[in-house]
């Protein structure tokens, strides 16, 4: 492996700075304006808007984002582990939860697929 070129590191730093900057800005906007929306989501919308205005995606930002999204399961691992340590949930609650997730997901999969197919036929769009 060759060490990354200095310009690459520079691009990655810019990408990281953009992500953290948007998150800070979003959190700030969310608390200052008392928005019900989570700050990080405001940050995401800010970045999306910025990218649409800019047209392209800076190289460093694309690479850092891909890395971070690959690591996503690691980031929410601590929260996921907590499922095994939930004590205050009754057995009936567990049953309801699993039924709701399994049956609910199947129903909503089917309904969404049928709706989209119907709408596409109606619009007659060739996409």
């Amino acid at each position: 492996m060759t060490p990354p070129a200095l310009s690459n590191i520079f691009h990655w730093l810019i990408g990281t700075a953009i992500l953290f900057g948007c998150e800070r800005l979003g959190t700030l906007a969310s608390t200052m304006l008392a928005l019900p929306v989570p700050g990080a989501v405001v940050g995401m919308l800010l970045l999306l808007f910025g990218l649409m205005v800019n047209g392209g995606i800076p190289r460093g930002l694309a690479q850092i984002s891909a890395q971070l999204l690959f690591l996503l399961p690691l980031l929410f691992l601590p929260a996921a582990v907590g499922v095994f340590f939930l004590r205050d949930l009754a057995p009936a609650d567990w049953l309801a939860l699993i039924a709701a997730v399994v049956i609910g997901t199947l129903i909503s999969l089917v309904l969404c697929a049928m709706l989209l197919q119907r709408l596409l036929n109606k619009a007659g769009s060739k996409w």
Partner: peptide, 9 residues
């Protein structure tokens, strides 16, 4: 938080 922002890409 930054990972949520990265979803914009």
């Amino acid at each position: 938080g930054p990972a949520v922002v990265a979803l914009a890409v």
